[in-house]
Amino acid sequence: MNYTYFFVILIGFSCTITQKTEVPTLSYSELKPLLHKEGNKTYVVNFWATWCAPCIKELPYFEAINQKKNVEVLLVSLDFPKHKESRLLPFIKKKQLQSKVVLLDDSNENLWINAIDSTWSGAIPATIIYNQNKRMFYEQSFTEDELNQIINTF
């Protein structure tokens, strides 16, 4: 009995470790602190999915600004949780994404869409850009120029 218990914990623990090193699956309450970081950088949070064509088009622009010294990009995937292994992880590998990626898996969408931004209708792509002085929300796609110009205003 004790052994069974031990193994269940061990397996659970190793699964958590594997997920953390790859792409963590987060509930909204787990994601929330990542949307309100208090460092000196400009934080860019992009909501996207592997099947979302306009999202994929602008991913390289986010990857590029993530290289900037004072910018940190977080890519929040809204892929279906059941497609994490079959689609999301292979996509990240294929595109060699350098930005941090998390998968948001929280069914109470009406709550967290409003909590993330009251003006968000729920369509993706959508992006939050914030630092200690300013916070903006964009329900739109960006061209590379548009994104760079916006980043320069922060």
Binding site: C52, P54, L78, E109, N110, I113, N114, W120, S121, G122, A123, I124, P125, S141
Partner: peptide, 10 residues
């Protein structure tokens, strides 16, 4: 009024 994730209209 409620919200859900969806795809932008193309």
């Amino acid at each position: 009024y409620t919200k859900a994730i969806g795809c932008s209209i193309k």
